[in-house]
Design a protein around this nucleic acid. Structure first.
Lengths: 333, 333
DNA sequence: ACGCTCGAGTGAAACGTTTCACTTCATTCC
DNA sequence: GGAATGAAGTGAAACGTTTCACTCGAGCGT
């Protein structure tokens, strides 16, 4: 069995309480005693048992973060932001990947609650989850990431997707494009609908008729392969568009591949814009113009909000933070 | 405060022990009693406190997985494999991202040991780590991922990189290439050195002189940007190579971009091969030929090995599993 | 009617910490 | 000189489980 604080106490010739003090408030114990205890810890290879500590303290210094898909660079950056602020405040982050499966999300929520994490950051699979509501009801602070709670009874951090669509739209229109394809994922995804709405607003704002300018291509998933197939199909049919605005960079990468493989020059024959500004966007065969979301900041702010709520559960007021996206111009437009 | 097993016991009118039995060995308690207890649990919103459970049980049903970089699809797949087998055996996985910083790795090892995880899967930042050795000495089973322990005193799972380099080399030679650039990361990375060694073996095996066929381009990092820059430089100088073999797909993506931006046709003017077969490889502007590693299987086997060791610490014998890579041919060659 | 076995449930000890009221002893103050 | 103060350390209770030796009856065969 691993040595306990008691073994350390015996070896150092002090009481258990003193060892605990050395561990938690070193300044409360005299220099020489501390040295002895530290030596004993070292000799025995003692490692504190955090289960016991937590049980007694009643609270853990850790947060849960449940993301939809760790393969997605967006969430990777969010996680980075969360870890940044959490670890700087001495919190550990338990990272969970729901893989967009409600069942996995439920299991992780259960585990996190059993571990008595201080709070949970989550991008839920479904708009509302019974288990998540229960967690909140029982008093665990929760922050929604890249989602908003219509009932506004918890904090959330998201990005203004309408503004992002508008940014892209205004830019493409300013470049003189009169026929724009919008490669969307399933319209059920709020992000897709919002980005299209922004695009339409931009076109309308320029005095054009969105219905004749925009050609919506709805695809079944936001993946490169799908973008490629959808673009090939569009090219084969009529396809007199001069620009493609894609609901995310993966789709855009697929469209780029379709363009290259059919001998179209980018941006001369076809301008391409992505969304998200993932790392690969800058390194694509033709570096992609895109809409950047302040992903790391999203994570940071979400974590800050959560910890703020943990520290002041009484005075805390829920906030809905909304970030503004940013236009990134590269060679594909 | 959250309700405890005791509150449940009172409410259901049974003893604490019975509630515990309902939770852990439901078959040991009579149907009707069980129903009452379950009802009480539901009404109170009871959630078991895993700190207490672990403290008492002395052992947790969780594993630690420390990877170098969650942004790297390789590790993402490994994690998937680990989670697959862990969760099917009722274990939870604590996912940690060392970001190639020894300091972070150390912190995570500390946290995992404090949590008394059953075992640790790790791709260490440095070849040897004091803290990792200590962990092992204290009896926590450990499995190395994508690394080998020269002293063979723990299990490891890796892929034969020499074989992978050879696969690529033989293929390129069979295509008639007589001048091949090898874009390597820092030679200090074993993978890079091994892949080059394999390439040289293949060239030699074909009766050619590796020194005159192979042009080694050592780069400071395995990133797309770096590959782009290195390739531009190579093109500017002499650059009479007809094929580029890259130590990983990111580098290859960069080389592809350089080729496209300088008007070279791929594969006619320059054939490009990557390594890893990440998801983006298939969806690049020109789909990349690559060497595929059975990443998910690596994770699965590593987890299996670890759990095997956890279950039979006495009889367990350390194994060094070595997977064979596979050639994937696409349009870039 | 007797001893047995068996299923169902009980109660208390134990896990390794943290915390807090308390003791000791030396120093300071008037 | 005696009380007051403060620093250093002590010891035991408490946290919420799991586990195990135990009790209590009911049902069984003879």
């Amino acid at each position: 069995m691993a040595p306990s604080i008691k073994d350390v106490a015996v070896r150092a010739g002090v009481s258990i309480g003193t060892v605990s003090n050395v561990l938690n408030r070193p300044d409360k114990v005299a220099e020489s005693t501390r040295a002895q205890v530290l030596a004993a810890i070292d000799e025995l290879g003692f490692v504190r048992n955090s289960s016991a500590a937590q049980l007694r303290a009643g609270t853990s210094r850790s947060l849960g973060l449940i993301v939809l898909d760790m393969a997605n660079p967006f969430f990777h950056d969010v996680a980075k932001g969360v870890e940044d602020v959490a670890s700087s405040l001495g919190y550990a982050v338990v990272l969970c990947n729901s893989d967009e499966q409600a069942g996995r999300e439920d299991r992780y929520l259960q585990v996190l609650e059993e571990q008595r994490v201080r709070g949970v950051l989550i991008t839920p699979v479904e708009v509302s989850s019974e288990r998540l509501d229960a967690l909140r009801r029982r008093g665990t602070p929760t922050v929604l990431v890249d989602r908003h709670d219509p009932r506004i009874d918890c904090c959330s951090v998201a990005v203004d997707d309408v503004a992002g669509g508008m940014l892209a739209g205004e830019y493409l229109v300013s470049l003189g494009h009169k026929r724009i394809a919008f490669f969307s994922g399933p319209m059920g995804i709020r992000q897709c609908a919002d980005r299209l709405a922004g695009l339409r607003q931009a076109v309308t704002g320029a005095g054009l008729d969105p219905d004749s300018v925009i050609d919506v291509v709805e695809t079944p998933a936001l993946k490169a392969r799908i973008g490629y197939e959808a673009a090939r199909e569009l090219f084969d049919s009529s396809g007199q568009v001069t620009a493609a605005f894609c609901a995310n960079d993966l789709l855009a990468l697929g469209v780029l591949r379709a363009a290259v493989s059919t001998g179209r020059r980018v941006p001369d024959d076809l301008a391409i814009m992505g969304y998200d500004d993932i790392e690969f966007a800058a390194d694509a065969a033709v570096p992609l113009s895109s809409i950047r979301q302040p992903t790391v900041d999203i994570g940071r702010d979400a974590a800050r909000l959560l910890l703020e709520e943990c520290d002041n559960p009484e005075t805390h007021e829920h906030q809905q933070v909304m970030f503004e996206p940013e236009l990134v111009i590269r060679e594909s437009t």
